[in-house]
Design a protein around this nucleic acid. Sequence first.
DNA 1: TGCTTATTTGCAAGTCATGCGAACAATGCT
DNA 2: AGCATTGTTCGCATGACTTGCAAATAAGCA
Lengths: 164, 164
Amino acid sequence: MHSPAIVADKYREQGRRLTPQRKLLFALMHGNETHPTAEGLFAVASKRMPGISLRTVYQTLDELSAMGEIQLMHCDGEAVRFDSNVEEHHHAVCAETGELFDVYVDNINSLRAQLPAGFEVENVSIVFHGRLAEKKSKSPARPQTVRAKTTKRAPRRTSRGSNK
Amino acid sequence: MHSPAIVADKYREQGRRLTPQRKLLFALMHGNETHPTAEGLFAVASKRMPGISLRTVYQTLDELSAMGEIQLMHCDGEAVRFDSNVEEHHHAVCAETGELFDVYVDNINSLRAQLPAGFEVENVSIVFHGRLAEKKSKSPARPQTVRAKTTKRAPRRTSRGSNK
DNA sequence: TGCTTATTTGCAAGTCATGCGAACAATGCT
DNA sequence: AGCATTGTTCGCATGACTTGCAAATAAGCA
Ligand SMILES: [Mn+2]
Ligand SMILES: [Mn+2]
Ligand SMILES: [Zn+2]
Ligand SMILES: [Zn+2]
């Protein structure tokens, strides 16, 4: 997502108005790597602007996504998460905490896949499911080859996690 | 998913009862490659057994998933889809029709990904978004290297498709 | 400052899914 | 076969998340 100033310009160019709500949300989403849900962002926004409406948060996030400033992510059965990173990237989900991390994969097109005949791929999304080792040594992300346990995928329970 | 007979045995072993509803649903899910939603399966089941309850369909699908006979799939913002294929595999979604196809990828572990430090991958799910070329020549699926257009991902609209 | 019109907001409504318990029926026993 | 036991089904209420709607509000501009 572009800087709040630039997003503001885009808004003006489109005849949209710059409200305090929007300005706040631009600021909160800019550089936000937490992939928040609407409710999550609403909670944060409410601290700085008590009374802001959840409806407005949804609306603004939808605008930003329509403008290509953010992306929507449907993760499992949970609420939609909003991603301020619109670069081509993928995700890692911690089964422990539910945290979502950005993951860059450089050699996607080396995937050998048996696609249906005539299927034209437009884009690929990869989700790495796993967990963060306890001791969080703050060494930077390092490139690594995936060593997923290629055992039969474990049956997942049906619950839709609630994030209250 | 195992054959209805085998699933029936597993049910008996667990002290569960074999009801006509369950038998029908076993049959409808066995070998089913359409990745139906609960409502979708309910619609089909209702033809053969008018009066069957949607609640029962949900319940039976949950049982089967808890027993590892089927998998749940959360696809975009749509309803959960149930997958009778529990082998390690991935999916291709047609943006046109919403159809979901199974895709086998043999070299997942050759992916070069920059995962968060300390992240231990348990499994990877890949979704190929794209579309089926109109003329459906019925040539079989053939292995192919992915040539996804690596342009910035297109902004997706926010709607949750309704599948009435 | 005042007008026009985009926004915000609260609440209703919608969709998908789960909780609940009374009515029902598969199974096992006599 | 008849009966008791207890797992199931099913309808309805409830819940989580999201969108529709329109009245009240407030940007942007003359
Ligand atoms: Mn959702
Ligand atoms: Mn869902
Ligand atoms: Zn991301
Ligand atoms: Zn599948």
